[in-house]
Amino acid sequence: MLKLDALMMDENELKKEADTAEDVSIINCLGQRYLGCARKKGHMLLSGTPGNGLASYLDGARIDVDGNVQDAVADTMNSGLVTIHGSAGDALCYAMRGGRVFVSGNAGYRAGVHMKAYKDKQSLLIIGGTAGSFLGEYLAGGTIIVLGLNKGDDSPLTGFFCGNGMYAGTIYIRSRVKPVNLSDTLSWSVMSEMEKQEELVPLLSDYVKIFSLSLDAVLAGTFARIRADSSKISKQLYAAV
């Protein structure tokens, strides 16, 4: 594995050098942008605080970050895996189409806006802590899970306007507390034990392994599912002249 120290070189040099190897580890990241952008193969290990646009258009590679990440991570990601051992800034996974993003800590505003799914591409975002406002806005497919492990299942785990305008996909929240202002075009249903086993176990199994958590302990909490209720979406929005 190629080992690089971000303190020792400038941003462009660093990225050029990182592109020369499939597997690369970079220490002391500090705001360098677009690391792992559109990367197809191999493994990238980052420590420090990488900059905005990390893993955008990611196309198959795996990226592990030991630390917090900033804004616009996994933007329009297509496939691969990103694990963040820390928290994420705003606009995480915007328009992500496929692959998986695992965050151990919190996510900022607008996580998972317009995430989608297409054929075998099923995007998955799992947030270990809480999420800011506008989580999963316009959700068009794929899955978002908010675990709130730092909160417990009797707390609200999202900010305002969760899932506004979503029309497909699913948001799972490990809490019995419904997000405030949840739009009336969305359904909120607390899951049975069987549903948890069937739907959540396949989604969570890799996540708990990566972050060394107990699957049983995670599943022990109350989970609820948010989906679009197509019967409540207004039909007569437009009128032809």
Binding site: E137, Y138, F161, N164, G165
Partner: peptide
């Protein structure tokens, strides 16, 4: 600055 989608945002 961003435009806003009134069907989805306040």
């Amino acid at each position: 600055n961003p435009s806003i989608d009134p069907l989805r945002e306040p």
